[in-house]
Design a protein around this nucleic acid. Structure first.
Lengths: 182, 182
DNA sequence: GACAGACTGTATGCTCCCATACAATCATGG
DNA sequence: CCATGATTGTATGGGAGCATACAGTCTGTC
């Protein structure tokens, strides 16, 4: 889980309990806990309309960028094709998207949004706007920008640490958007 | 996945492709992607010694804070008891920890570290130190502190958004440690 | 034109976690 | 004492994702 408190102040038991935590992972730990908490918050807010964060993300993508094939969508979402295929199945069962054959390529399914999907996507957009504004309360825009910059730097360092060099034009660089609009 | 590039510069296809991304989720998206990348980096680095991030985290906790029961460990790691139990099983199979009956309470298993576990925990510590220093390259300490502060604020906002009020002394506030040592 | 290679979507097995339900055990009020 | 409630650890079913393997299809080269 991730809904940890912010600073549990005065625990009742040990006094020097504040800074024990895992002996390693400090900022990194906070970062990962925060990410999970955000994911959870989105899931909670999206549950009333019957979606999860990943499904809503896929739906929004299809709603905005016309019919696409699944590989494109998977790359954009930074997932594998298998996972995306399963998500497409579910969205299709919900009647929010539909698969159309590509006349030019009999292998691919073009995934397109339905009218019901358009409505759902609008609802997702509203929920996102509201939640995001709540999450950003008390955080200035400059802070967000600095945060994003450090995060990007961190991602770059991760890429170097894992793959040796940062992937220049790799097939999966979608989520790297940085804040630039209010 | 999370090993996204930092800024994919000039894609070959569309020119205005840089800032499209998911129409919602901006800083939040970057945050979550970064967290996943970090988790992956730890998993990659820990794989040679046969551990995963969650297992290593549990092992380190047991190594540092003597024998504990599983519920305590689960709370500290911010997980459920079931997941922790499974992890304890695996660490026990690896001979890194052992379960001892609690003489005062026949329900509980006190989880204690073994000599092999001590050695493994030391290896984990080394890996963590090295990787963390790599991840922090090019990021000043002040930036990290600001980052942590914003993250804590974000977590607080999430708690408010999800639970209405931030959990004051909830039973799971462990990961919230903030950077304070080099 | 035919064939080796690349690509799309899917199926399978694996990992990791949660949420619920459950048996065993403690703790407390009568 | 003993019945009721709480707590510990576990079993089970589910969700979500990955990596691999696979069949069907396109594409480039000879």
């Amino acid at each position: 889980m991730g809904t940890n408190a912010t600073a549990n102040g005065s625990a009742s038991s040990a006094p020097s309990h504040e800074l024990d935590a895992p002996p390693w992972l400090r900022v990194e730990s906070t970062l990962m806990a925060t990410a999970q908490a955000i994911r959870e918050a989105y899931d909670v807010r999206l549950a009333p309309i019957g979606l999860t964060l990943s499904l809503a993300s896929l739906l929004s993508y299809i709603a905005e960028f016309g019919p696409v094939n699944q590989t494109r969508a998977a790359e954009h979402l930074g997932q594998g094709r298998a996972a995306t295929g399963a998500q497409v199945d579910r969205l299709q069962q919900l009647g929010l998207i539909e698969r159309r054959p590509d006349p030019d390529d009999r292998r691919v399914w073009m995934v397109a949004i339905t009218p019901a999907g358009v409505a759902k996507a609008a609802a997702v957009g509203e929920i996102d706007t509201v939640l995001r504004s709540e999450l950003r309360s008390g955080i200035t825009r400059e802070e967000r920008q600095r945060l994003a910059a450090v995060l990007v730097r961190l991602q770059s360092n991760v890429a170097v640490a894992v793959h040796g060099v940062q992937p220049t034009a790799s097939p999966l660089p979608p989520n790297t958007t940085i804040e630039e609009r209010p």
